[in-house]
Amino acid sequence: MKNAWPILTVVISLLAIWYAGAVWMNAQWVRDQAARAGTTVTVSQLFIGTMNLDRPVLPAPHQVVMELWKTVVDTSITSKRSLVYHAWVTLSATLLGFAIGTTAGVLLAVGIVHNRAMDMSVMPWAIASQTIPILAIAPMVIVVMSAIGITGIVPKAMISAYLSFFPVVVGMVKGLRSPDAMQTDLLRTYNASATQTLWRLRWPASMPYFFTSLKVGVAAALVGAIVGELPTGAVAGLGARLLAGSYYGQTVQIWSALVMAALVAAALVGIIGVVQRATLKRMGMSR
């Protein structure tokens, strides 16, 4: 309970700023409407008017909450209007991409740690890959893959993987190299093979780094999946909702999709955190 107050304070402050922003940004529209109707608005009318616009510049928090309620709770999840349906479309691509990215990242890190040629050559490419704007490369991935007949979840997952492998490579290289000279010397006195050293020393020692990388990676994977839905005019997924919302000026829909994306990301990071705590506890690495 001690932690609740600081968190609550921050949440309330953010909501207050959001409401103030909504009033400020939507006020012009309300005044214009009044001027067109030849009336004037009082301050309280102005305030109430800015709270419930159909297409506000910045929707008020309660509008987003009501939209979320409508599209999450009141709509069957099989419906194309359900945000849960769209979230799942994005989530499935995220998870597939995350799995591919994590596997690739771990394999690359193992290679980098064990092979001098890979150590010298892979990292610059990995860094270069992340300097290319994902928005520039995403349409090409979708187009090239659909040209060879691969459509649907896989191209989006590739973009997710492209974003999520990098934090895993960086974290795991650091983690696999975290045992100190004494610990590697010890295994040398046993004449242990590289494989034995990997499984008995490097891999367990890298676990704290691994989970931290996964948390960064899974958030990146979600961004990748959403970005992957934008350039193709996808009909389903959180990215599609964002796109449709911006076409039709449905700011409430855009914001509710954004909030949904944030909730999904928080849930994914939270789940990894739980697995992390359980694993490290079982390994005796947390007290």
Binding site: M182, L186, P204
Partner: peptide, 12 residues
């Protein structure tokens, strides 16, 4: 068998 300055036991 080699004994180092620190015990160097694996925490896990």
């Amino acid at each position: 068998g080699y004994v180092f300055q620190a015990a160097g036991l694996y925490p896990w």
